[in-house]
Lab assay of single mutants.
Amino acid sequence: NQASVVANQLIPINTALTLVMMRSEVVTPVGIPAEDIPRLVSMQVSRAVPLGTTLMPDMVKGYA
Rank of each mutant, 00 (worst) to 15 (best):
N1C: 06
N1K: 05
Q2N: 13
A3V: 06
A3Y: 15
A3K: 06
S4R: 02
S4V: 02
V5K: 01
V5D: 00
V6L: 14
A7C: 04
N8A: 13
L10C: 06
L10G: 12
I11L: 14
I11D: 01
I11M: 04
P12R: 10
P12D: 12
I13S: 09
N14V: 03
N14L: 08
T15A: 07
T18M: 07
L19I: 08
L19P: 07
V20L: 12
V20C: 12
V20I: 08
V20N: 12
M21H: 06
M21W: 02
M21I: 03
M21A: 04
S24Y: 09
E25I: 06
V26A: 13
V27G: 03
V27C: 06
V27H: 04
T28F: 06
T28S: 13
V30K: 07
V30N: 10
G31S: 03
G31L: 02
A34V: 12
E35A: 11
E35Y: 08
E35C: 14
D36L: 08
D36N: 15
P38T: 14
R39A: 07
R39N: 13
L40A: 00
V41I: 13
V41T: 07
S42W: 10
M43I: 04
Q44C: 15
Q44L: 13
Q44S: 11
V45E: 00
S46G: 13
S46M: 14
R47F: 05
R47K: 11
V49E: 02
P50W: 06
G52C: 07
G52N: 12
G52T: 02
T53R: 15
T53E: 12
T53P: 01
T53D: 10
T54Y: 02
T54S: 04
L55C: 02
L55G: 00
L55T: 01
M56Y: 11
M56W: 08
M56R: 11
P57A: 12
D58M: 12
M59Q: 05
M59H: 14
V60W: 02
V60F: 05
K61H: 13
G62L: 08
Y63T: 03
Y63H: 04
Y63K: 03
Y63W: 14
A64S: 14
A64H: 15
